[in-house]
């Protein structure tokens, strides 16, 4: 299938051109944050403190890697289940977060937030962490080092493979895909 080439930052102009089901190769910068890092970022926003990175037009990757072997840039680095971040996503979208990469369903509230902010939710392939590590060219821990695998990492990526799971119009592949292939039994 044909792939769309996408560079970061993910501006509104770039985001609105992406359609549900598109296969995309992302190059540029991603930031990782999982459950524990989200809790801290939400706390920072509440206390009006600076965040570990500028949210505007950025992409967060829900992922926590395995430790890299000596000499390797990256360990296994696939996506985690996104729905655990649902309750903590709206404040980040409202601060300009434009893209999220994870796997699995999102709540109706997050889908509304995606539409309102013209953001995009991408799915990476769950359980393909070894393959995904090939697209990671640099890793730097930039915040919450004490969280180990859950620390915020700045990733430099080249042709990072994702699928547009929810586009800026709120169209969701998990609904459209299932409906298309559902059969009577």
């Amino acid at each position: 299938m044909e792939k769309i080439i996408l560079d970061t930052p993910l501006t509104e102009k770039r985001a609105v051109n992406l359609k549900c089901g598109d296969m995309v190769l992302i190059s540029g910068t991603l930031y990782t944050a999982r459950d524990a890092a989200h809790l801290r970022m939400i706390d920072n926003i509440r206390q009006k403190k600076t965040l570990p990175f500028e949210l505007k037009d950025s992409i967060i990757y829900y992922a926590g890697p395995t430790p890299e072997r000596p000499g390797n840039i990256s360990g296994s680095f696939g996506p985690t289940t996104s729905s655990r971040m649902d309750k903590m996503t709206l404040p980040l979208l409202d601060q300009g977060l434009r893209g999220m990469i994870g796997k699995g369903l999102r709540s109706p509230e997050v889908i509304e937030g995606i539409k309102r902010n013209k953001a995009v939710y991408f799915a990476a392939i769950g359980g393909a962490g070894a393959m995904i590590s090939n697209s990671i060219k640099g890793i730097e821990i930039i915040a919450y080092d004490d969280l180990g695998t859950e620390a915020v990492r700045k990733l430099s990526v080249k042709d990072f493979p994702v699928v547009v799971a929810i586009d800026t119009f709120g169209e969701c592949i998990y609904d459209s895909g299932r409906n298309k292939y559902k059969k009577e039994f």
Binding site: T66, R69, S76, F77, G127, A128, G129, A130, M131
Partner: peptide, 26 residues
């Protein structure tokens, strides 16, 4: 797209074995 996913999963297994990178980060 399903076929593409399955291809990727097979690639992933080959890469994991060859480079000794865990199949999944979890």
């Amino acid at each position: 797209i399903g076929r593409e996913v399955l291809e990727n999963l097979l690639d992933n297994l080959a890469i994991a074995k060859e480079k000794q990178i865990p199949i999944c980060q979890d």
